[in-house]
């Protein structure tokens, strides 16, 4: 069963192809991370899947309904949290939630009960009756996501849910998404943050210039660009040569100095473990003072670089994607 199924989505703005034949399949109950730099087409994809935008060509089904011809049916089964906390600032948190409840035609007791439930879950009880204008950025995001859950959507779309949040609020948001997912909600998440996809997503689709350039689990993607590396730091740079010699028999490729460092070595190793204790022993034997030894799996940043030849611009936190 797929909660989201899209094939050949194309959307062109003026001369730019925001989407260039995107295919997506999201199994029910899983979290898909839609990963790509600014302007890759992530937001356009979400806008089409949430019925806000019509594709020029291609088709998509969400929760079993066509996003173009059965848009209302889709809308009643999805939740959307966009890049900007879309709350009514001059209403209180409670009123915002009840407003959405009204739009879903819940009667008064039901919408008030649901609002209370969500206020409690999202730690907004104390500020429930203050207008949202007075909320912090993290509180607004929590209210925003709570608003998209009022009608218990089966598919939740989160467009860069942690962009602009401080680390603590981001952690809180991640916990929320994990809980939703464990409740069985299908989540489609766009992000520029590689660690976010790493932590939350069951599978990842990497898009660049409106098309899919890779997909799979995070681990599969990492494997595609080569295996683990051992990273060895020593205290004294003069021991570097003997450390290289000691590591030689343990590694499977050239030993390199980590860029920007004079005391840290990087080298590929075979997957499967056992290398770290051996390395420590060998380094001890040759008299190099070891500061740190670790095994590093490649990050999604490395994945992106190797797939596209350019970096995912994950540092442009506040820039928005307009296309």
């Amino acid at each position: 069963m797929y909660a989201v199924r899209a094939s050949g989505l194309v959307k062109t703005y003026d001369q730019t192809r925001a989407l260039d034949g995107l295919d997506l399949e999201v199994p029910t109950g899983t979290v898909l991370g839609l990963l790509g730099p600014n302007g890759a087409g992530k937001t356009t994809a979400v806008r089409i899947l949430t019925t806000l935008l019509r594709p020029d060509s291609g088709s998509a089904e969400v929760a079993g309904h066509d996003v173009v011809t059965q848009a209302q049916a889709v809308r009643s089964r999805i939740g959307l949290t966009g890049q900007y906390a879309a709350v009514e600032e001059r209403l209180s948190g409670r009123e915002n939630l009840e407003l959405v409840g009204s739009f879903f035609r819940l009667d008064r007791p039901k919408r008030s009960a649901r609002a209370n439930q969500l206020l409690q879950r999202f730690d907004l009880v104390e500020s429930a009756d203050r207008i949202a204008k007075t909320y912090s950025g993290g509180m607004r995001r929590r209210l925003d996501i709570a608003m998209s859950l009022v009608a218990r959507p089966s598919v939740l779309f989160l467009d860069e849910p942690t962009t602009g949040l401080d680390p603590r609020s981001r952690l809180g948001m991640w916990q929320v998404i994990e809980e939703l997912s464990s409740d069985g909600t299908t989540v489609v998440l766009t992000t520029q943050y590689l660690e976010e996809a790493d932590r939350l997503a069951d599978s990842v689709v990497v898009i660049d210039r409106g098309a899919k350039i890779a997909e799979g689990t995070v681990d599969q993607l990492k494997d595609r660009i080569g295996g683990d590396k051992i990273r060895v730091s020593i205290f004294d740079p003069s021991n570097l040569a003997s450390a290289r010699e000691a590591l030689g028999p343990l590694v499977t490729g050239p030993i390199e100095l980590e860029s920007g460092s004079t005391t840290t070595l990087l080298a590929p190793i075979k997957a499967g473990g056992g290398v770290v204790p051996q390395a420590i022993r060998a380094l001890d034997d040759c008299g190099a003072d070891v500061r740190d030894v670790e095994v590093r799996r490649p990050t999604l940043d490395d994945v992106f670089l190797s797939l596209t030849g350019h970096r995912a611009e994950a540092d442009t936190h506040n820039s928005s994607e307009t296309s």
């Binding site: 806000l52 209302q72 049916a73 809308r75 890049q83 906390a85 879309a86 009514e88 739009f103 998209s148």
Partner: peptide, 10 residues
């Protein structure tokens, strides 16, 4: 973004 939210409602 409120119009987006409203447009995503049934």
């Amino acid at each position: 973004g409120l119009i987006d939210r409203l447009r995503s409602l049934p």
